[in-house]
Amino acid sequence: MSIFPPEKRIWWKEPIERSEILWIVIALVWSLIMFVMMPYWHIAGEQNLSNEAYRIRPEVFAERTEAMAEKYTVREEGDTGIPVVHPPAGSDIYMLARLWEWWPVLELEKDQTYRLHLSSMDYQHGFSLLPENINLQIHPDYEMVVTIKPNRSGEYSVVCNEFCGIGHHTMVGRIHVVDK
């Protein structure tokens, strides 16, 4: 019994029962399939995160974001007057996270690719693009670059899903995807 020492002193020479061996083989094969799925998706799948990231000071990232906003703002939105930025297709676009907003609002064209740069000005934040349910972790001092290709038009929200203080639940941003 499992609460007493094995009755056979030389337990490591006992034969293993057949169904046990069979299960071990099946489980091992399944484990390897699951392992292979990840490299396979890097080759054949369309949803992979780039490994592109940089160390960056928050003020530098803010400068770049503001420069983009200054150039391509098309209108303002909502009570807060947050700028809506429509950058050219294929360009580098920026969204910064800070207590408690995602800035600015982006307007993107459907089926175009963009290099999205993300970073935080203060705490860690969670970039949760809804209703797609794409989730990325945003750090201060790190700039993450991910190439996105919005393939459906509509209004998307960016909800913060990393706890970032008492106003965390008010931190919502916006991305519009428009037909060209």
Binding site: D79, S128, L130, N161, H168, H169, T170, V172, R174
Partner: peptide, 24 residues
């Protein structure tokens, strides 16, 4: 979670937020 509801979040109605997302 599969519908995107965040963890550690006080209010998924976003009643105090400047912008809101409407969960299904």
């Amino acid at each position: 979670g599969t519908l995107g509801v965040p963890r550690r979040h006080w209010d998924i109605n976003f009643s105090d937020a400047a912008m809101a997302y409407e969960f299904p």
